[in-house]
Design a protein around this nucleic acid. Structure first.
Lengths: 205, 205, 205, 205
DNA sequence: AATGAATGAGCATTCATTCAT
DNA sequence: TATGAATGAATGCTCATTCAT
């Protein structure tokens, strides 16, 4: 029985390893060629398994992409929530969110490419993604801003949701630029630049 | 001679009409299904012509997408430059650019979808696009900001290029949200919202 | 009326000129690319006319090829018959036929290419061609040989039709080699070489 | 282990069988319709496999034709060389070559059609083919004739290469006639007829 | 007669997915 | 579980032919 347990556990580990390998391979291949120009056999090859094996772990090519998004978003959201939960001024919380956003994507260029490029690659994916996690993510930002308004730290004549989109859009643009740039530079520090402007505006006082 | 002129002019008009019809059909079909899920025969059908006729005006499916981008970008840039040329405070110029951006895309939802979704849909297109027109566009914004700093209207401790990306990213995000939203609302007014925050920041004074 | 005649005659001349131009263009284009890789528009372009005009003179692309064969064969046969009609020993007649064969094709490399390559390019064409003119041509050769046997000039223990095929096949091979050879050499002199062997055999006496 | 061996061997056999089946089907279909009028799906259908399967064994339709030529030529050359190697008078060697030529093609009418018709069907194929194996083949014949001249069996006032072309051209013509003939007759015996004339000439002594 | 824009049937090739082993 | 050979639906593009002018 010990054997059985061990087998089962190692089997599960293997399952998890293969699934993981396919996802990593998918990120790499999708980042390189784009979703539609990537073949399932490319992913299988990159993962070091046979083509057919992919279908033991994923129902379709599309599901691989979905899983990449879902898993990354779940981590994103989870970390975002953790930061929110920790006490701190609303401004600090926004700062942490922005830093996390850029650190996360800046640490995994291939994942960033898939996010910036493929997620946008079809209304279908974007809408599904929106439904899935994007809205939650945006809401975390919005909440921090609303809290700042309640505490008097932030101006009260702005709409929190608009400000949240501006922050998100700004960060997104930084990532997109970084992804497409032939130059290699650290992404995370851009968080400070963005917030300096977002907090203080560009007008001279 | 009148006849000749008329013939020649109508012939040119027909050519131009058909090219135009294919581009409009392409925008519609790409917006609906995405580039890779759109068939050339869909576009031909939408344009009311035979499949083969498409190839009298475009060398390939890909060239249709390119032409859509190129033409729209050319207009974009041209209008952007015109606004810049007109005198006005740097702040006014940014305002006009933002309004134009949203008016333009807000007036043609399908074109907006293609831009927001397909352009992002492949690094290939994005890089070509970047090379082509995007950089010029961003530079127009950057220049306005730099001018504002020179005139003392804008803070001098921010990097114009970063602020330009923030404005662009914010506008882009507004468009993306609008495009994906099931709700129908006017896009152009968001320009004011964005600039209120970008100009003044979100911090309370 | 003079005018009408002139018109009519020049009209006929034009018709004939265009037909001729298309056939020449066809020979050139088919020789260059082969029948299946040649486009009707290539031929039209080469002939300096519009695509549609081709169909005023020929029912189809296939008919152009046919006409090329038919016309050339008619000339071939006619000249062959004239040589036969002229008195001369059977051996002289064979000599003239062989010379004519190689002179004719050697004088028009493009026509030779079409004959050697395209005519063989499909059983369909070959069978039609056989039915049309090839059989007549071979029969002229056969007759000369039979005459030579009757006159005692040629061995009587060989089948005239076989000897005719051998002569034809030999000449054909000379043409094929000449057509495919990167080297440029006069084709006609090969007639003597061929007949020297055909007449005397290769055995030493 | 026996199992492994058997599997491996049967696997290889299957691969080989399928490749073989496609080649046979290609010969049949090309012989029936000609290369350009044959669809890959015709070949697949004839071979009893799916269209896509063809591409697991051949890169393109063109490669199928090439493989047909290459394989047949390799056999041709090999047998030709074997005959040459065996001692025998030059005349005997020529006889064996001629017999083999006609036996080989006479035994596989479809292959003969493809050779006579398709190989000639394009200068492209002919030139590649020439480069590949035809020259070798012709050289074997030429060598036998040159040997005959050296031994005094053959006349020394003829050019071996010309005589070789005459033999080849004659045999080729026999095959072409046989292929196109509606009548069914054995091809191989023509070898004797051809050589009787080639050896002795047609002149009476 | 001449044009050349328009047509639309036709086809090689790809690749996500299945399934026998 | 894993494999990878086999499948066959799907589609961009070509080009012979037509026809309105």
């Amino acid at each position: 029985m010990a054997k059985a347990v061990k087998n089962s556990s190692s089997a599960r580990a293997v399952v998890s390893d293969k699934r993981e390998a396919i996802l990593r391979a998918g990120i790499k291949v999708f980042a390189r060629n784009g979703y539609f120009n990537s073949k399932v056999s490319d992913i299988a090859g990159e993962a070091g398994i046979a083509d057919g094996t992919v279908y033991l772990y994923f129902k379709s090519k599309d599901e691989i992409l979905h899983s990449i998004f879902d898993r990354a978003m779940a981590e994103f959201i989870e970390e975002g929530k953790r930061e929110l939960a920790e006490s701190g001024t609303p401004a600090d919380r926004l700062k942490r969110i922005a830093e996390l956003h850029l650190e996360k994507l800046g640490a995994d260029r291939e994942l960033a490419i898939v996010f910036q490029v493929e997620l946008r690659g079809s209304t279908k994916h974007m809408q599904e993604f929106s439904a899935a996690g994007f809205h939650d993510y945006l809401d975390i930002i919005r909440q921090a801003i609303a809290d700042g308004q309640a505490s008097g730290d932030f101006r009260s004549d702005i709409k929190p949701i608009v400000a949240a989109k501006i922050l998100y859009g700004s960060l997104d643009e930084m990532v997109t630029n970084w992804v497409l740039s032939p130059k290699s530079y650290p992404l995370a520090p851009m968080a400070g630049e963005v917030l300096k402007i977002l907090f203080g505006g560009i007008m001279a006082r």
